[in-house]
Design a protein around this nucleic acid. Sequence first.
DNA 1: ACCTGAACACCGTTCAAGT
DNA 2: ACCTGAACACCGTTCAAGT
Lengths: 240, 240
Amino acid sequence: MEPDAEVPRRGRPRGGPRLTREKVLEAALTLVDRGGTEALSMRSLAAELGVDAMSLYNHVANKDAVLDGVAELFLGRIGQPEPTGDWRADVRALAAAFRHAAAQHPRAAPLVLTRQLESFKGLVGTESALGLLHAAGFPPEEAVHALRAVLAFLVGTLLREVSSGPTFSGQNLGGLEERRAELENSGFPHVARAAPHLAACNHEAEFDFGMDLLVAALEQRARARRSTATSAERRTRPPR
Amino acid sequence: MEPDAEVPRRGRPRGGPRLTREKVLEAALTLVDRGGTEALSMRSLAAELGVDAMSLYNHVANKDAVLDGVAELFLGRIGQPEPTGDWRADVRALAAAFRHAAAQHPRAAPLVLTRQLESFKGLVGTESALGLLHAAGFPPEEAVHALRAVLAFLVGTLLREVSSGPTFSGQNLGGLEERRAELENSGFPHVARAAPHLAACNHEAEFDFGMDLLVAALEQRARARRSTATSAERRTRPPR
DNA sequence: ACCTGAACACCGTTCAAGT
DNA sequence: ACCTGAACACCGTTCAAGT
């Protein structure tokens, strides 16, 4: 029989390292996709890679670094949509790309949404967003404020969306009737009147509504900024 | 010597239960306030209460129920501001009350922001918000959309705010210069130009900016709704 | 009814030892 | 240089036993 066919090797491998940081993080993402963050332990991750738990520490500092790495992996998978020239459509597309990535990794998404990363990876999206807002007429400082407002909304909606569990045809229907009845009998008049709408949640509709709101507000602001800029110009530099 | 002076009693206590669900959750909030969620274990919680870990299970189902309970405790501490009659100011005040509660329990806030609770406690805020949006002229369905948009923004900003660590005079100044330099040398032109604004974050200013944006958008929408409603009325019921 | 202690099946991480 | 196994100090939770 062959000397080292299937038996687990120990010590330094002959043909280069079996593990790399990349492979470790990739496996971690797989594990989180499959069973959520709670299914990821250094031991389960090692098992997934067919390796002893301690071997991981040659490639990542600790478990927290693994979680950061998974979040970065996620960030890297956010597609960068081609700009159309209409900044309103492009801001929407950027947000939609984020949402799409979250939909593909619903159980990993909270890692990106919850931790604040000092990641270089995040900067490409930031650059795109600032470029669009610059095109819309916002100076850098206001563009940063606008970016943060949209991002905050995104974090909030996506967190709700991904943590509302598996959905049935876009809507969460589990126990809808019970929830509606409970809201109707809550004793709160406005809650009772809105019960059918509070009991269900169409995530895509909520996402669109919020983005509509934000884009409309930004547009209004951009317009106001343009008109005051022109009138200021008119004042200082009257038409000849 | 006295028979049961300082020795830990065992078995059923004589003077009613030493533990209640309330006391357990209160202690849990204290622990989280002090050392964050990671400082809360069933064992540390029991120690805080001077009790065996297993005693807790007589009052809460498991650790998850404790975390839910702490979140509810937090919800109950959100002050309900007195309405002024101006729905825009009142929506802002409601959001500010939420933010204020988060500022008082920065390490417990993620529990409310991250978990979706089916809590009755949350309904009082919902009722207030829907009432204000009703006064602004929104029908129930649109009011729910608006509420969810504002809530999403709130979750996102507050999550950023509370997880950005301890602050120095309202701003996070740790390593500001390093961050700015890194952003300036990132190779991304818009990022570089906005570096000073990206490196720092005045949470209150961001909060105000976002709320301004949302309230302005809601106002615009309410106005549009009123004018189409009146013109529709004019068409079907012309003035005599 | 309520509290307890031992026990079970897990964790993340350190450290000395292997090759 | 990279992987390993035992060991340490923790977890959450079950269960039988106490009063």
